[in-house]
């Protein structure tokens, strides 16, 4: 039974990190109808930035609390800046091009960013500094759920609530929902659509950066290639929940996290990634609109 609970908890942790990345996919898709292939790379850059900042600070002897805060903020800032720049360079000029064009451009961006980090830093796996200490009060249940799991779950919950608030009640949130429904109409009622799109990329990237920081400190190592797999998995989660739907992304991520956790725990860990990919292929074939998504009607 303990094993089951352990797997359940680690599944939830995985799922909540997928959710942080999946939200970026789903938000961008909702607004401009593009699969942002480079999103996984934005997450990787977030992890790398927090790695660099945290390591530098720890070498210079800063206290742990300061390191965590500064690394988190830096990751969010730089990831957002990358997300913003990627949109301006690779997607904005192609907003009226045939559908294949921004998709190819996105794949190009993904490859570009991956290799940029590879060349600027290294291809080796790097040890990520331990940012989340083992809490003393967690001792009795430490064998089923670790401290970092708890921190991850709490952080994700807070971030989700903040995002919900932002989208439901703020001006930019309302503008985002309006643009997602009908871009032309949003433009006509005076919404600055370019700014809304930029905001979407910035918010999505910041979420991914937080995800990057959390997972890097959870797993304990990073590498330039982590964005690719994480990106595809988060995308799977977004599609599973129904791409374009924010609650869908969270639901899909949790389901994916739990599925992976149980499948690797009870079946085999060799095929961990195969489960996710197969799930993706199956959903797209049998229910492309996902669990909470709307089916698309063709306009003729």
């Amino acid at each position: 039974m303990d094993y089951f609970i352990e797997l359940f908890c680690s599944g939830l942790t995985r799922g909540s990190i997928y959710a942080l990345i999946a939200l970026g996919y789903t938000m961008v898709y909702g607004i401009i109808g593009l699969i942002n292939f480079a999103h996984g790379e934005i997450y990787m850059i977030g992890a790398f930035t927090s790695f660099i900042v945290a390591t530098v600070l720890s070498i210079y002897g800063f206290p742990l609390a300061a390191i965590v805060v500064v690394a988190g903020v830096a990751a969010a800032i730089w990831s957002s800046a990358y997300g913003y720049t990627v949109e301006k360079i690779a997607y904005k000029p192609l907003r009226h091009a045939p559908r294949l064009a921004p998709l190819i451009s996105a794949i190009g961006m993904s490859i570009l960013l991956q290799n940029y980090v590879l060349l600027a830093q290294t291809s080796d796996f790097l040890p990520f500094p331990e940012l989340i200490p083992e809490f003393a009060f967690m001792e009795p249940i430490a064998h089923i759920i670790g401290s970092s799991d708890i921190v991850i779950l709490l952080t994700t919950t807070v971030v989700m609530l903040a995002l919900t608030f932002l989208i439901k009640f703020t001006r930019i949130g309302k503008a985002m929902r309006a643009t997602a429904q009908d871009r032309t109409m949003a433009l006509l009622v005076g919404i600055n659509v370019d700014r809304v799109i930029s905001a979407t990329f910035i918010i999505g990237s910041a979420l991914a950066a937080i995800g990057g920081l959390l997972i890097a400190s959870h797993i304990g190592q990073i590498n330039f290639a982590i964005g690719f797999i994480a990106g595809i998995k988060a995308f799977t989660a977004a599609v599973l929940g129904g791409i374009g739907s924010i609650p869908g992304a969270v639901l899909g991520s949790l389901i994916l996290g739990l599925t992976e956790s149980f499948a690797t725990g009870y079946i085999s860990s060799d095929y961990e990634d195969v489960f996710a990919f197969s799930l993706l292929v199956l959903i797209l074939i049998f229910k492309p609109s996902g669990l909470l998504g709307k089916a698309e009607t063709k306009k003729v």
Binding site: L34, I35, R99, L100, L103, I107, I232, F235, T236, V239, D270, Y271, D273, V274, F277, S278, L280, V281, L284, I285, P288
Partner: peptide, 27 residues
């Protein structure tokens, strides 16, 4: 099954398929 899908989904499914084949060969 997949050619009924829209262009961007097709891209992702084929990407996933490519990875599945490689992972199977690896494991």
């Amino acid at each position: 099954p997949v050619l009924r899908l829209r262009g961007d989904y097709l891209a992702i499914v084929t990407l996933g398929f490519g990875e599945i084949i490689r992972l199977i060969l690896e494991n």
